[in-house]
Design a protein around this nucleic acid. Sequence first.
DNA 1: GTGAAAGCGCTAACAC
DNA 2: GTGTTAGCGCTTTCAC
Lengths: 362, 362
Amino acid sequence: MASLPQDGLKHLAEATGLSVSTVSRVLSGKAAAYRISTDTQERVMRAARQQGIVVNEVARGLRLRTTQTIGLIIPDVSNPFFASLARHIEHLARAKGYSVLLADSQENVEVEAESVKLMRSRRVDGLVVAPVGISGDHLHQTGSENWPLVLLDRVPTGYAGPCVTSDNRQASKAAVQHFLEQGHRHIVCLQGLPASSANQQRVLGYQQALQEARVPVNAKLVIGHDYAIETGRSAVHELFSQSNPRPTAIMALGNLIALGALQALRHLKLKVPDDVSLISFDEQPWAELVDPPLTTLSQPVEKMAETAMDLLFQQLARTPLNSHKQEILLPVTLIQRASVAPLAGSNRIRLTERTPLRKRLR
Amino acid sequence: MASLPQDGLKHLAEATGLSVSTVSRVLSGKAAAYRISTDTQERVMRAARQQGIVVNEVARGLRLRTTQTIGLIIPDVSNPFFASLARHIEHLARAKGYSVLLADSQENVEVEAESVKLMRSRRVDGLVVAPVGISGDHLHQTGSENWPLVLLDRVPTGYAGPCVTSDNRQASKAAVQHFLEQGHRHIVCLQGLPASSANQQRVLGYQQALQEARVPVNAKLVIGHDYAIETGRSAVHELFSQSNPRPTAIMALGNLIALGALQALRHLKLKVPDDVSLISFDEQPWAELVDPPLTTLSQPVEKMAETAMDLLFQQLARTPLNSHKQEILLPVTLIQRASVAPLAGSNRIRLTERTPLRKRLR
DNA sequence: GTGAAAGCGCTAACAC
DNA sequence: GTGTTAGCGCTTTCAC
C-alpha cells in the first residue's frame, strides 16, 4: 500500500481538534449511537473530504476480525460460463458490502489448494469455490473448521457441506434421450475435465440414457480431457476421420468444447445436422448465431450465483443452515434449435420450429 | 474473518517454547538472515503445519504497509474481452505474489468511483482500471497522489499517466477502408459507450476513413449507446427496417454488438454478406463459426495485460517510468473472413480465401 | 541465535 | 458528547 500523504484518523483528530475515538465514531457511522453533535460530525466529515482521507480498512479488519471480503476461486475466468458466474457473484457481494478477491485456479488442483490457503491467510470472511478435482480435502484444511464455504457448479464426491450445482446428470440424460428419440444410436460424448464432478454427472446421465434405452454403451465414445476448445477439436478429428461406423450425434459437455467440435466438423466437411447432430452444454449469446443454430442445455447461471451467495451469507450471519437444504440442485433447460436432426432413414421428422423450443428438465 | 481455532504466532510461540519474534522470522523466510538454527526452524515449521496455522496477512499488511494486492476494476467481467483481460492479469499478479481484488463497474461511473475509493481504503498496492467515462478525475482523488495506477483499454482525454490501449482509431479506420475498397459508401457505425475513449477513437477512425475517401459523413449512421448485445440488435432493427437508401455495411464496435446485429439481420431476413457486410471489433472463438464467419479486428489481449502489469510493477518497484513510454499503443490485426463482400455492382471481386487473411495494422 | 517491547491504524470498553 | 486506553497479530530495532 502506498504511503498516503495524509493517513489516518490520528491526522484527522489533530486537524479537527477532536480525539481519534470521536473521529472513528463518526466515520464508521456510529454518530447516532454515541449522540455526537451535528456540528462535530460536520467538522469531521468536511476535514476528511478535504484531506482525502479514507479509513484504513486493513487496520479496521485487524481490529474487527472481519475483512468484508469474500474469496472466489474458479477454474477459468475466461470461460464465459464462469465469467458470468463471477459477475453475478461480484454484484451480489458488493450489494451486501463485500469485496471479492479473485483467484483463477487454471483447472489445477495445486493452484486451487494454494489459493485456498492464501485466501485463508488473508482472512476472507467466506469462500465460494468451483473446485477442480474430485477430492475436497484441501478445502478443509486443519484449523479451517467452521469457515464459511460454499461450493459452486462442481462438488467432490462425498462432500457434505453447502453447495449448489445444476442438475448435470438429468440434463445430459435428457439431451441424449432427445438424440435417441431422433433415431441416433452412435452418440459421442465429448467430455470435459474427467476429474470434475460436473463432468462425471454429465457422463453418468449420458450412460443412463443409453442403458435405459438398451443401447450398448461404448467406452470409446466418451472422449476428451478438459473444457478447452482444443479438446473438442482434436476429439472430433480423431473420431470422425477414421472410425467406422461413424457416430451420428455429439453431446458436447461444455460450450468451448462444442465450439471446437464445430470447427473440426467444418474442417472435415461434415454438415451439422445433416451428417451429424450436436448438442452443447451451456447456453451462450452466440449459440443461436453459429451455423447451424445450436441446440443447448441452458444452466440457470444467475440463479446459481444467487443461491450460492445466499448459502454463504447465511453462514456469515451465523444462521444455522437448514441442514436439509445444504445441497441445492437447480434445473437445466433444453433449448431446441437446429443442430439436431433425425437420423437419415429413421422415421422421425426434423424439427422445423422457427422459435426455439424450451423444455424445462425435471 | 472467522475466528480461527488456533490463531497466530503467539500460539505457535507457546507451542514451541520460542518467542513470537523467532517464530515470525522463520515463517516469513528470514531464518537465514537471522541465523536461526535449523533445529528451531524445523520445530516451528512442523508445529505450524500440524496446527494448520497460517499467518494473518491482514496484521502483516498493517505492519508492513503493503497488502500484496492489486485492484482490478473493469466495466463488465462477463464481456469475453474483459474476462480474458482479467484472466491474464490474475495470472501475472499471482506470479509476482499479488492477489487481485475484483470490481465490476457495470459501465457506471459512480460505481467505478466508489470502487476506486473502496480499493484505496483497502490499501491495494496498485490499481489497474479500464475506466468507464471520459473524465479521469475520480481516479485521482485528493491524497492519492503517487499511488500506482495504470489505465487499460480506455483512456480519458488529457490523461497523462501510464496507460495501455490498442490502436483503436487506426483499427476501425482500416476496417472502414476495407469496406470502401469493396465499394461500400453507406456504412453504419454501431458504437459502444459513447463516453468511453475506446469508442471515441473507433468512431474517429471511422470518420477519418470516410473523410479521406471524400465520402460524406452522415451523423445518423453512428448509432448505439453501449457495448451490450441489445444495442446491436435494436440499432440494426431501427436502421434497416426503414431507412432509405439502406446502408450496405456495418462496423460493429464491440463483439457483443456484432452478435446483436447478426441476430437482428437474421430476423429481418437480410443476408450477410450478400445484403450487408459486417466487421466486428474483438476476435472471439465463435467468430469463425457463426454464419457467415466474421471478419474481425483482433486486439492483442494478452499483450495488453502484460504491458499493463509491467507498467504497474515498475511503479510498485518505485522504478521511475520512462516518461516517453507511459502511453502505450498496441497494434490491432484485421482478420478477413467471409462477412464482407464487394458491393453489388461494384467492380471488386469477392474474397474467396479458404484460410483467413490476417493483416497487421500499422 | 533468540527475546522484549514498541507500534502499524483502528475500535470499544470504560471513564467523566 | 467526548476522551483515554488497551489491544487486534504482526515485524523489527535493540539488547543480550
